[in-house]
Structure formats: C-alpha cells, structure tokens
C-alpha cells in the first residue's frame, strides 16, 4: 500500500502498540455504545481516553520529543475532572429517578 499514513505506522515497527491502542479504543467505544448503564458508559469513555493516552506516549517516543507525554498528563487531569463531574451527575440522576439505565433518558427525541 503506497499510503504515507499506513507506511508510517507499519514501517516504524510499532504495529503492536498501535494494535493495543486500537483494541483498547474499540473496547471502550463498544462499552459506550452498547452497555445500558450510565456508569459503564463512563468507564468506557475512560478506556477510550486511556487508549488515546497510550497512542500519545507511543508517538512521543517515536518522534523523540516530550510533547505527547506532557499532553497525556494533561489528559489525565481532564479525565479525572470529567469523572468527578460525571459520577456526581449519575448519582444525582439515580437519586431523582431511581435508575441509571440510559434507555429511560430520551427527552431529546425529535
């Protein structure tokens, strides 16, 4: 395949790391898409974020600079905040409605 994008990934020899990243990201995505509980969906989001972090660290190493690693630290901070807020919302929703099943929240139906 004469594609710079794929050449770059395969040629660098980091195919296994990329595979792990893709696997983690897909698993997280699937969790978000198909688990019915909000708590699980939040965990799926975390998984996806961690997959992205991993890819940042790998590319940082590949390019021999520290930008990606610094960025991944930032993502940790943001993710922590997001979890704190997300869990607070979920707890509140549970208190109000007695359920955290995502199918019950369909107020946006057109």
């Amino acid at each position: 395949m004469n594609n710079p994008f794929t050449d770059f990934i395969i040629g660098s020899g980091g195919i296994y790391t990329i595979a792990v990243v893709l696997l983690l990201f897909t698993l997280g995505g699937m969790t978000v898409l198909f688990r019915r509980t909000l708590l699980h969906m939040l965990m799926g989001v975390e998984l996806m974020l961690n997959a992205v972090n991993l890819s940042f660290i790998y590319f940082s190493r590949l390019h021999q600079n520290h930008d990606g690693q610094i960025l991944s630290l930032m993502i940790f901070v943001v993710a922590a905040c997001e979890v704190a807020v997300g869990i607070a919302i979920i707890v509140h929703l549970f208190k109000r409605t007695g359920t955290i099943s995502v199918e019950t929240y369909t107020a946006e139906r057109g």
């Binding site: 995505g29 978000v32 898409l33 929240y105 369909t106 139906r109 057109g110």
Partner: peptide, 27 residues
C-alpha cells in the same frame, strides 16, 4: 426526525459511522 431517537447510544453509533466514513474517504 426519525433519526432523533433521543437515545444517546444511537447518536454514538451515528458518530462512529460518520467517523468511519470520513476515514474511508481520507483513504
């Protein structure tokens, strides 16, 4: 408006398909 089910996971699927389409287009 039939696409607007109000189910957030359905929207997630749209996003995935959209992203997949974009990547496929890029390739």
């Amino acid at each position: 408006s039939y696409l607007q089910t109000g189910n957030i996971q359905a929207y997630g699927i749209y996003i995935i398909f959209g992203a997949a389409l974009a990547v496929a287009l890029a390739f």
